[in-house]
Simulated assay, not measured.
Amino acid sequence: MQDISAIIAGCKKWDRSSQEALYRQFFGYAMAICLRYANNKDEAIEILNDGFLKIFHHIDSYDSSRPFKSWLSKVMANTSIDHLRSRKKIHFTEDITQVYDLGMPDEHAISKLTYEEILGLVQVLPPAYRTVFNLYVVEGFQHQEIAKMLGISEGTSKSNLFKAKRILKEKIDALTSMNISGSGPIGATQPS
Results as ranks from 00 to 15, higher is better:
A174M: 09
K54H: 05
D82G: 12
E154L: 04
K171E: 12
T176I: 07
T189L: 13
I167M: 09
F26H: 05
W71Q: 01
S192A: 10
M178C: 11
M149A: 00
F56A: 01
L102K: 08
A147F: 14
D3H: 01
N134D: 13
M104G: 08
K69Y: 06
E94T: 04
S70V: 04
S177E: 08
L168V: 09
P67T: 08
R36F: 03
I81A: 10
G120I: 09
D50A: 07
I110C: 13
T131N: 11
I172D: 05
V124D: 02
H108R: 13
S157R: 02
E116K: 08
Q2S: 06
F27Q: 11
S61C: 04
K13M: 00
I180K: 14
M178Q: 15
L121M: 09
L102F: 03
D95P: 12
K112F: 12
T176Q: 09
N78C: 14
E116T: 03
F56D: 00
V122W: 06
D63I: 00
L119Q: 09
I8A: 06
D173R: 06
K13I: 00
A77T: 04
P191C: 02
L125S: 11
S183H: 09
T97G: 05
G155F: 05
K89R: 12
V75A: 05
A9S: 04
F26Q: 04
I172C: 04
F141Q: 15
I186A: 10
I7H: 03
N40Q: 07
S86E: 13
D42H: 01
Q144N: 00
G51E: 08
P126A: 15
V132H: 15
D63H: 01
K74Y: 02
F52E: 01
D101V: 02
D82A: 12
L150T: 12
E154F: 05
E46N: 05
L35V: 01
P126C: 14
G187Y: 04
F27A: 01
V138F: 14
E94Q: 06
K158C: 00
S192I: 03
Q19F: 05
E46P: 04
L53N: 11
S5V: 00
